[in-house]
Amino acid sequence: MSTFSVNLSIPFPSGREAEIAYQVLRVDKEPSRASIAKNLILDNNLLQISISGTEARKVRVALTSFFDSLILVTETMQLFGPPVPTYNYY
């Protein structure tokens, strides 16, 4: 069975903003019915995402949903930022 995968690299104005997006987006797990694998990696000011699965439709849904969330996080940072340098409540 073939696998469909999407790899993206999203640049942020600063490493801290990329880190916030990474921390905020990594918490929610994909629903188990989605049967896709999602992996987030933080690389300085880049947020790297890879989504893969055996059904193209499900990969597309996961990608759309990721962008919905990412846009909301970046809009929140634009309106309520800039962020303080560190987070102490993990």
Partner: peptide, 15 residues
């Protein structure tokens, strides 16, 4: 999930 995302983001922005 929408409200949780924004709550987490503002928590991070303001520590």
């Amino acid at each position: 999930t929408v409200t949780a995302l924004v709550a987490r983001t503002v928590a991070q922005i303001y520590n």
